[in-house]
Design a protein around this nucleic acid. Structure first.
Lengths: 248, 248
DNA sequence: TAGGTCTAGTCCTATAAAGGTTTAATGGTT
DNA sequence: AACCATTAAACCTTTATAGGACTAGACCTA
């Protein structure tokens, strides 16, 4: 059952892999390339199967896996869509600020500049040391009270559009902005938590006393395919901190 | 394609669900009932399908889902097995103590008694307030240095065997003990992290100064089917704390 | 306008079948 | 003992087919 030649759509995939894996890889690539917005359905099963020159059964298996992986959403009778959104929520399970109404916190950009990546940032972003990166320094507020200091690094030139838009447009949520400006979708992230003490500068921003315990959150955010897209270091008041995790 | 009557094995499952869902539910029940140890393979596809009176294709779909859920492990040519172990690892990603060798920390039981569940414990364990629970008070050590205080509550009479075994046997890892003594397998857990200050008692145990920042971890552990099996409150020195999370 | 019915489009359930790959065990050969 | 070929058992891949269920929109009716 080895196919001598296969659909041109699979030309760039690893020929040693079984068909379903190759189709999956290609679909992930196309999702990542933003071929379908979150409101445009993918082609129906029948059309996709025909395009890949595989049977509907095999294609259904791939789509089911992608749905299980959280990349696609399928709705009987309506169609198959790229999945977005839920992620933003899961990232904001911390800091007991979402009491009651699901409001998003405010934010104020303190600084935006272009830097040569320091060693630890370069390592996290998986780029060469001293290569150009965009740096955002941001303060997050809850009901006008600052609770979190963020330092965000983004690789250039990929994120150049973010360097050029007005600061007002860098509203509270960055990930939708990445998607709109660059067509880049954050698919997963790793966070590392530790506890530190407030420096003088942090104490001023957070309106606390120097030496107070802070929670430090290092986040590495990736696309669906695992490429690192953003590195972020956040510091927040430990006293107002709460973080919830599911383990499987 | 509505089946008038189905395999007796599915008698206790919800008849409104599709076949594959009913078979999945039943297999989860049987895994939970410890029908197969982690070294005994499940019956082969062909035999299982025949026993449930369904086609091999449908059964394969169920087994694939269970494997994706991390409940089963399948090996071509060898068989299908209940999955264990990996979980213990994922639970111990915190506290930067596993440097190099993957040693498990030591532990010392400070106290074991039967209590009437306090309100917050009863709520977490999903039992009536003041009902009998087993309480373990444990100190965890890394190279003879205490780094974590644990308070563990288990519902009775389910966990009665744990109340009766010798304290020596409550070695460092509890979950294998649950499996061996009660046949109960922990499948998932929720943890909530926050930062507190050391009380006098905690300071003595952890060899720190009263008021030092501590990390507090509340863990609710569940079986594969979602029933709460254990509630645990841990306190550790914030200075030696590091926690890593994957978000999807 | 409001509320039904119908229908095309889409995904879902279930079965069947042919052939392939991997593993473990067996028994022979060197 | 070490190596190899064979074989049975187990899971994997792919295709094909028949029918069911759900959704959105078109159309009709009151």
């Amino acid at each position: 059952m080895t196919q001598a030649s296969s659909s041109p759509a699979l030309a760039q995939t690893d020929q040693r892999l079984p068909l379903h894996a190759r189709v999956k890889d290609d679909l992930i690539r196309r999702v990542r390339a933003n071929e379908w917005g979150s409101t445009t359905p993918l082609p129906p099963e029948s059309a996709l199967a025909e395009a890949y020159a595989i049977s509907v059964g095999t294609l259904r298996r791939v789509l089911a896996e992608l749905a299980a992986d959280g990349i696609l959403e399928r709705h009987q009778g309506r169609g198959t869509y790229v999945r977005r959104a839920t992620f933003q929520h899961s990232l904001f399970r911390f800091f007991r600020m979402q009491g009651g109404t699901g409001q998003t916190p405010g934010s104020r950009i303190l600084e935006r500049n272009t830097q040569n990546a320091p060693a630890h940032v370069a390592a996290a972003l998986n780029v060469k040391e001293h290569s150009a990166v965009l740096h955002l320094h941001r303060l997050r507020l809850w009901q006008d009270t600052p609770f979190l200091i963020e330092n965000i690094w983004l690789p250039l030139p990929q994120f150049q559009p973010i360097a050029e838009i007005s600061l007002d447009e860098l509203g509270s949520l960055l990930y939708p902005e990445y998607e709109k400006r660059i067509g880049l979708i954050i698919g997963s992230a790793t966070e590392e938590l530790s506890v530190t003490q407030a420096t003088d500068g942090q104490a001023v921003l957070l309106n606390c006393i120097s030496g107070d315990p802070l929670v430090k959150i290092n986040r590495t955010a990736r696309t669906h395919t695992g490429d690192v897209a953003e590195y972020r270091e956040s510091h927040g008041l430990a006293s107002s901190f709460r973080y919830q995790v599911e383990i499987n």
